[in-house]
């Protein structure tokens, strides 16, 4: 260990020039880890710190705000080539930064990009990695242990991580709680110039394709209408879209719906898809396999509609209707439109 100072790195998640809220959740987790290690071993970590590491362009103003979340400093690799995610390049840049600063561990929120980046980085660093973590602890001898769900969340597994190196950990977004900003403190921003030309990249990005702009992402939507096997194939799914339209919500599905190619991947709710926490979620014709419920159990209000009174989904629902989606939903839509809800 190059230094006994516990320096925890969190990777800044940003999109279109804005820092995403998961970053603040990571800062809170890092803070928790520091407090825990302090309690366990005074002399080790009395001067522990949290460093945010950012790769991107045009982020200066946003990064200055991070002081309000208990982050002590920012290491910022800026460059137009880094403006958009590139797994190979990002991993190489992070390796360089790691070698220079030798942090104690690197935390990321688990998403499509970090599920690519984290293992790349851990391989380059030749270090331990645990992905999709829901809880981690640090013991008196500075051992890190991480807990993660397996087998669609039916089970949890706990792992100890190799102590001699800097572990890479990705945390599931549903455990990253939103953090209130405190008064902004002065934060040191260290600019790192790294020339991407020095890396011999093996892949070449030729094009970025946009998804349809009218479709709101399900993990950002306040209201989500989701359908499962019980809705049926092909046109049957139209009823879900119609309800989403009348409630100004977004459409999601369970894994079978995605595998039947009725909806694109990014609309999959569940352990292997998106984890969502909308204010209102309709679960229509969904039995409630763990795969799905792990992705929605943080939703504020859940309405379940299913013909089977014994369906597991009802354990997760606040309001339940036992009935056929195709009989109930048209009447729900009718009622909503009749009430002229948007004019009340």
């Amino acid at each position: 260990m190059s230094s006994d100072k516990m320096n925890i790195w969190i990777l800044v998640n940003h999109r279109q020039g804005t820092v995403e809220k998961e970053t603040y959740g990571l800062a809170a987790e890092a803070q928790r880890l520091l407090t825990m290690s302090k309690q366990n071993s005074e002399e080790y970590c009395s001067d522990g710190k949290i460093t945010a590491v950012a790769l991107g362009a045009g982020l200066d103003a946003e990064l200055k705000q991070l002081g309000a979340y208990g982050i002590n400093s920012v290491v910022y690799a800026e460059g137009q080539e880094l403006a958009r995610y590139n797994g190979e390049l990002f991993a190489e840049v992070l390796l360089k930064l790691y070698e220079k600063y030798k942090p104690a561990c690197i935390l990321m929120d688990h998403n499509t990009e970090t599920s690519d980046l984290a293992p790349r980085l851990a391989s380059l660093m030749n270090t331990s990695i645990v992905t999709r973590v829901i809880d981690f602890t640090i013991s008196i001898n500075r051992e890190i242990a991480a807990t993660r769900p397996v087998s669609s969340g039916y089970l949890f597994e706990k792992f100890k991580l190799e102590r001699t190196s800097c572990p890479v950990i990705t945390l599931l977004p549903n455990v990253l709680n939103e953090t209130e900003a405190a008064e902004n403190r002065n934060i040191e921003i260290i600019n790192e110039k790294i020339d991407p030309g020095t890396f011999n990249l093996k892949t070449k990005v030729t094009e970025i394709m946009e998804a349809a702009p009218e479709d709101l992402e399900i993990d950002e939507a306040e209201i989500v209408i989701s359908g499962g096997r019980g809705v049926g194939k092909e046109e049957s799914l139209d009823i879900i879209t119609r309800l989403a339209k009348s409630l100004k919500g977004s459409v999601g599905g369970t894994r079978p719906i995605i595998d039947w190619q009725l909806l694109p991947f990014e609309r999959q709710i569940g352990q292997t898809g998106k984890v969502i926490s909308p204010r209102l979620l309709f679960a229509c014709g969904i039995s409630g396999a763990n795969e799905y419920t792990t992705g929605m159990e943080k939703s504020r209000l859940v309405v379940a509609i299913n013909t089977d009174p014994g369906a597991r989904i009802f354990k997760f629902a606040d309001l339940s209707v036992i009935g056929d989606v195709h009989e109930v939903l048209p009447r729900v839509i009718e009622k909503i439109e009749e009430r002229g809800i948007w004019n009340l």
């Binding site: 999109r15 892949t203 070449k204 970025i208 946009e210």
Partner: peptide, 13 residues
């Protein structure tokens, strides 16, 4: 490749 935000990245290797 699938990216965040419903984007697809086309890459050659």
């Amino acid at each position: 490749r699938e990216l965040e935000g419903g984007l697809n990245e086309v890459i050659e290797m």
